[in-house]
């Protein structure tokens, strides 16, 4: 069992919304700031996302040890695994905490799911919900627990908005209304546009502007 709790971020969103790619953009920025991150990736039918992140972030770029990217199969119940019964995720997080007590942050990626996804507070301290513009500019207006209650709403793939007739100003207006002024960020995870803002939000709201543990220890 773990000795101390490392801050945990849950990232949820529909299939293909860009959860994995957002993490692949976030980790290098956080690492550049000195923060060490572990990743637990829940996948509905494979470990492809975990394997991809391990290869990209650990094996090829050396931003983290390979054992800091763990894939979990969820028995076809992605929301159950992060909300109703997060037992297995909590166990894996605690194993990671025990093995790597100097981590600054653990990111838990949910399997792709619907707009009612939320994370159990026992599992995640901060919840990022990501949608993309390909579902149309009505998406924020349609609400759903993820869009309404997440700590940070990320709207991805803004580069294709014009091709599918999605008006970003409508999405922004509706996001403000349904979220009661809680933060939202527009990003293009493919190029990294806007991701710095997500990182800043994490450092401020999750890490409370604390320096990386490696710096604090030294």
């Amino acid at each position: 069992m773990a000795l101390s709790r490392i801050p945990r971020i849950g990232i949820g969103g529909p299939v293909g919304s860009g959860k994995t790619m957002l993490i692949e953009q976030l980790v290098p920025i956080l690492k550049n700031e000195g923060y060490n991150v572990g990743i637990i990736s829940n996948d509905v039918v494979s470990r492809e996302d975990a394997d991809r992140m391990r290869k990209n972030l650990a094996t090829e770029r050396g931003l983290m040890p390979e054992d800091l990217v763990i894939g979990i199969a969820t028995g076809g119940c992605p929301h159950t695994a992060v909300r109703e019964d997060p037992s297995i995720n909590i166990s894996v997080v605690e194993e990671m905490e025990a093995k790597h007590p100097n981590l600054d942050l653990i990111i838990i990626e949910s399997g792709g799911d619907n707009i009612t996804t939320t994370f159990s507070p026992a599992l995640a301290d901060y919840f990022i919900y990501i949608i993309d513009v390909s579902g149309g500019d009505k998406y924020p207006r349609k609400r759903g627990l993820g869009i309404e209650t997440s700590d940070l709403l990320v709207i991805n793939k803004i580069d294709i908005a014009s091709f599918i007739g999605a008006d970003l100003s409508v999405m922004e207006r509706d996001a403000k209304i349904v979220r009661n002024d809680k933060p939202y960020v527009f990003v293009n995870s493919k190029t990294g546009q806007g991701v710095k803002k997500v990182t800043e939000q994490i450092i401020k709201d999750v890490l409370f502007d604390a320096p990386p543990k490696s710096v604090a220890i030294n």
Binding site: T74, G75, C77, A81, D85, S87, S91
Partner: peptide
């Protein structure tokens, strides 16, 4: 089965 044990993840 609502009791949290994670058994739903195994086949």
């Amino acid at each position: 089965s609502f009791f949290p044990t994670g058994l739903y993840t195994t086949s």
